[in-house]
Design a protein around this nucleic acid. Structure first.
Lengths: 261, 261
DNA sequence: TAATATCATATCGAATGCCGATACGGTCGT
DNA sequence: ACGACCGTATCGGCATTCGATATGATATTA
């Protein structure tokens, strides 16, 4: 007779647990560099081997998982389909694409669009530099912390200060490089600077040797939707000059994509 | 032992139906240009409103669906995560990225990597032309028919002829442009040409006014994994010259990515 | 060679968690 | 006022999922 709110995180009685389990199993592959076995998935999720077996069987049949040549499991092609369905009808994406392309060619630098998602941001468009060919795994769907990225701080600056602070406090604030600011008040100070300037810039905080300027894209009520990023390597340019030259362009692009009227 | 054929479409008793239902609901958004309501999802999937309600509730909570401002439903950010997990550990993708970048800059043309998936192919890397800014919705995860695309035919040419023919026959062969070849024997003739040449080229079949050369990437046993595409618009170049000039480059790139030893 | 520890796969009784008909309160058009 | 949608909530019954367990294959030990 356990009619208490026994489960913490789900909510109403509409929640389908088998679906959650399957998705959790699918999500195991996020940080996995290699294919996985049933047993590994079981220990990682905490589910029984049977549960994992059933989830995996189903996801295999549906195409969201696939078998590596050695029989282990990896992400399936259908995962790409889901990304397409997200991007395709998204008005921000389709509006941003040509604008970012033009921006990339005007600057020659790496040009990205990220989307706001609380303590993390997620890259939705990534355009490569026309100069260097570093494969910084410039992949769609990569998440980065909000608190230490230029885009993240530009977006935080669009939130009510208290709300921004909540996000900063809720972040893990694990330093990604020796230069990552981890002190909440220091981070909030940077956010305040971003609010005053209308853009944010960071050097070396999320990635060593990288300089980034970013401006926030906002919705109809001024809420942050995403950010336009321009990045380069400090070995190729002077950071201050980079920021000074490109911040206005990032702001302009972000403004064109914003819905504030 | 139990050769029970009475089961309709799933397979063994390990198949979890609630998961299938949730994924089917999620897949409804593939061809939807607009956010959807519960009722629309119910009619489109054939499930009861209750089932859809539960699936949607769960997918919302997990982040794979999101609410549009008017309350209707759309794809959620988590869908992008799945694409990342597919791309990130994939050795073909990480190997292809720098090679395609170099190829794109050597040619200046749109450069893609597609992956083989039976009657369709799916784009995994899309690099824009350095010349024109058309937003041909150059998005990851887009599927195209195998039978009428250059990449598709290049891949079919790597299969045993009979198997290729099976795929052609299983394709819908709905013409995408007036120039799309729909006659199976005509298509197989083009595949034979591709096999002889080591690459495939099409003009205007999948997209009006587009010329594409493609070469297949093959696995250790010569099986097609994907294809390297180079595309341009016929208003910008002479198709024959385009094919003649770039086919060797596509072949070279595809060869570098292949596992045949 | 044998023992041990993985692995994937399959089975099956039990009860839980999903199923889906149904109901309720909105908000549109008309 | 009505009807036709919308999203949301409820609830008894029973199909479906659950998870312990068994099997055989493969790999790594000694």
């Amino acid at each position: 007779m356990n009619e208490l709110p026994e489960d913490e995180q789900d909510g109403s009685g509409l929640f389908v647990r088998s679906v959650e389990k399957a998705m959790r199993v699918l999500e195991c592959f996020r940080h996995a560099r290699n294919p996985m076995t049933l047993g590994q998935l079981a220990t990682q999720t905490g589910y029984t081997k049977s549960t994992v077996q059933r989830s995996v069987h189903t996801l295999l049949e549906l195409g969201y998982l696939a078998r590596h040549s050695d029989g282990r499991l990896q992400s399936g092609l259908k995962c790409l389909d889901l990304a397409f369905q997200f991007l395709q009808p998204n008005p921000l994406i389709s509006a941003a694409y040509p604008i970012l392309l033009k921006l990339r060619d005007a600057t020659g630098e790496r040009t990205n669009l990220s989307l706001f998602d609380g303590t993390t941001l997620i890259y939705a468009i990534r355009l490569q530099s026309t100069k260097d060919y570093i494969y910084v795994s410039s992949l769609i769907g990569r998440r980065m912390p909000t608190f230490c990225t230029a885009g993240g701080r530009a977006m935080l600056a669009q939130l009510p200060r208290e709300q921004a602070q909540q996000i900063v406090m809720a972040s893990s604030r694990r330093p990604l490089t020796p230069q990552t600011k981890t002190d909440p008040s220091e981070i909030m100070a940077a956010v305040d600077v971003a609010r005053a300037q209308g853009f944010a810039s960071v050097v070396g905080e999320p990635v060593i040797g990288e300089v980034t300027v970013a401006a926030a894209v906002v919705g109809a009520r001024g809420d942050p939707l995403g950010a336009v990023h321009l990045s380069s390597n400090i070995s190729h340019c002077d950071p201050d000059e980079f920021v000074g030259r490109y911040a206005p362009l990032a702001i302009e692009a972000a403004h064109m994509l914003s819905e504030m009227r």
